[in-house]
């Protein structure tokens, strides 16, 4: 009697029984797929690395060759979304599949905030991580996606600890500080990572009665707040994003406590993407060695021109999307 073989891809979102037997090439293995541990675990494996935005398979190849730990498959980098305006949506499945076919490192893709069907589509396309991203136009101004029901893990943006904890409570397996995407101005990334780490540090010195109030003020579940006060860190990996354009930017984010960095427009909007990408990878690993960062910063050609965040009118600030 054969056991019925079910691919986790065919399981409906929200299925209560995640224990299943998956269809494998040439073989089959029983186990628990899409568990919190393997979702959060993939982010653990990306730590100390650089995740790069790419819009073509050729760019994905350059990123992999330069030492990216993962790529984010997009139709337009944030700088172009910003320049061209209009509604920004999930990328064309053909493009995402072409990028998955090109590289062997993990491929991430973005869904609009609250757009759970875009997320279902991305899971069906077999992406390795979904970014529920403020860089795209939100699909729901009230609710984020219920991320627990998916096998594929999610990364979400946050500008402060409360926002990070609300996303984790919804099932996010990785957090990235938002920064201000598509600007090449690192100041918002600095602000957000400092805010998150500062709020974590504040929790560590609180007494139990103060933690109840902290949970109320953070608008976050008490259990998560108490856990962080105890461990001194988020229960998921914390990357930083939004405005990183140079090796020194990346190293600064690492020194400020990030586990790794996302670089969006900063690489492929610069003069020599392959060289800049490799330089940012080195500076991320050797973030505490200024002489290596100096070497990595030489001869990179033009950095992306960028926009000062202060010159952006409020409606065009992406970090304010999501709550």
């Amino acid at each position: 009697m054969y056991v019925r073989v079910v691919s986790p891809l065919l399981m409906s979102a929200g299925s209560t029984s995640r224990s299943t037997i998956a269809l494998m090439t040439n073989a089959s293995v029983s186990g628990e797929f899409g568990s919190t541990r393997v979702k959060r675990g993939l982010a653990e494996m990306l730590k100390g690395g650089v995740i790069m935005d790419v819009v073509t398979p050729e760019q994905a190849r350059i990123a992999e060759d330069a030492g990216a730990v993962a790529v984010m498959a997009l139709e337009r980098v944030p700088a172009d979304i910003r320049a061209q305006g209009g509604v920004a949506r999930m990328s064309n499945p053909d493009l995402i599949e072409a990028i998955i076919a090109e590289v062997s490192i993990p491929v991430m893709a973005k869904a609009r905030i609250g757009h759970f069907v875009e997320a279902q589509v991305l899971q069906a396309l077999d992406v390795d991580y979904i970014d529920e991203s403020e860089v795209l136009s939100p699909a729901d101004y009230v609710n984020h996606i219920d991320k627990w029901g998916f096998t594929v893990p999610f990364v979400c943006g946050a500008t402060n600890l409360g926002e990070a904890l609300r996303r984790i409570n919804e099932g996010a397996a990785m957090i990235r500080s938002k920064g201000e995407a598509g600007t090449g101005d690192v100041s918002e990334a600095t602000k957000h990572i400092r805010k998150i780490t500062g709020e974590i540090n504040a929790l560590k010195s609180m007494t139990k009665d103060e933690l109840y109030v902290a949970a109320k003020e953070l608008q976050a579940p008490y259990d998560l707040v108490a856990e962080i006060a105890e461990t001194g860190k988020l229960p998921v990996v914390l990357f930083t994003a939004g405005g990183v354009a140079t090796p020194a930017d990346a190293a600064m984010m690492m020194q400020l406590g990030a586990d790794g960095v996302f670089v969006g427009s900063g690489i492929f909007k610069s003069g020599d993407p392959a060289k800049r990408a490799a330089a940012i990878v080195k500076a991320t690993t050797f973030y505490d060695d200024p002489s290596i960062i100096a070497d990595a910063s030489r001869g990179l050609g033009e950095a992306m021109v960028g926009i000062n965040v202060g010159d952006l009118p409020a409606p065009h600030r992406l970090a304010e999307r999501g709550w």
Binding site: S30, E32, S35, V38, Q123, D126, T151, V152
Partner: peptide, 11 residues
């Protein structure tokens, strides 16, 4: 060897 993240598992 197992494929994408959807094929990651515990056992």
């Amino acid at each position: 060897a197992f494929g994408s993240q959807n094929q990651s598992f515990e056992t």
